[in-house]
């Protein structure tokens, strides 16, 4: 890291289990402030499990998780959310029986004083504004993804976790989501991006962490990883 400033998010040697199955093994990575870290790996590598552990859905059996230098592992998810971690989960998981506006309202924290409010989300994603009174379950996949991102943003997080935001979306929508991610980063948000779309991830990332079967396989600056097709091929299949 080269400086004394703490990482926005530091995952330190965590071990995570589902029952007896040791799904994340001694994984560490550090997300620098105002940067984007791409967490890559094949299906089942443990990416979602890692993000869920950061969010507090799972508790690591060993290891520490630090948010700007403060330990958060073991706190309940709601407390972790309020300390400044926002999750855009895989599969979007918007609240289908809430309207679009309600999805944002229930997740809003400090919206009156801080950067992101529901109104700003509606400006960023005008399609959501048109549908604000509709039940979220009726939205298209792309709209649900925008809502999931907006729902995380109105919590005014300091660290944003994005789990496969392009999954199942049309190319046009993927581009829109990518633009939004780039904009959030340029505003100073620290972001962990999990993506199957490696090209997209490498184009947005400052740093890359490769997971393989629950273990850390490689990590480094995005440029260095992108310049090593053999490494990518080994851990991600065909680039």
């Amino acid at each position: 890291m080269g400086s004394d400033a703490p990482a926005a998010l530091a995952v330190e040697a965590i071990d995570v289990f589902y029952g007896e199955s040791h799904v994340v093994q001694h994984v560490s990575f550090a997300l620098r402030p105002r940067s984007l870290l791409a967490l890559l790996g094949l299906n089942g590598a443990g990416k979602t499990t890692s993000l869920h552990t950061v969010m507090g859905f799972l508790i690591p059996r060993r290891g520490r998780i630090m948010l700007f230098g403060e330990p958060i592992a073991g706190l309940p998810p709601a407390a972790i959310a309020r300390r400044g971690i926002g999750l855009v989960p895989q599969g979007r998981r918007i609240f289908p029986s809430l309207t679009v506006a309600e999805n944002l309202a229930v997740a809003a924290h400090g919206a009156a004083t801080k950067a992101w409010s529901a109104e700003r989300v509606f400006v960023t994603f005008p399609r959501l504004a048109e549908r604000r009174r509709q039940y979220a379950g009726l939205l298209s996949g792309g709209e649900q993804q925008m809502l999931a991102i907006g729902r995380a943003l109105v919590g005014n997080p300091r660290v944003l976790l994005l789990d496969e935001p392009s999954e199942g979306l049309a190319p046009q929508i993927v581009a829109e989501v990518a633009r939004a991610v780039a904009a959030m980063k340029s505003e100073g948000l620290a972001i962990v991006l999990v993506e199957q779309n490696v090209r997209l991830a490498l184009s947005l990332a400052d740093d890359v962490v490769l997971l393989n079967a629950g273990r850390l396989a490689a990590s480094g600056p995005a440029a260095a990883i992108a310049a090593d097709p053999a490494l990518i091929d080994r851990h991600l299949g065909v680039f």
């Binding site: 507090g56 959310a81 999750l87 309202a105 229930v106």
Partner: peptide, 22 residues
């Protein structure tokens, strides 16, 4: 908003906690 939070908790309890709903 309270009612919406409750419904969110019913829709997806884990995710509701994940957005800060107690």
């Amino acid at each position: 908003r309270l009612g919406a939070m409750i419904r969110a908790g019913v829709d997806d309890r884990e995710m509701a906690e994940g957005v800060g709903i107690p």
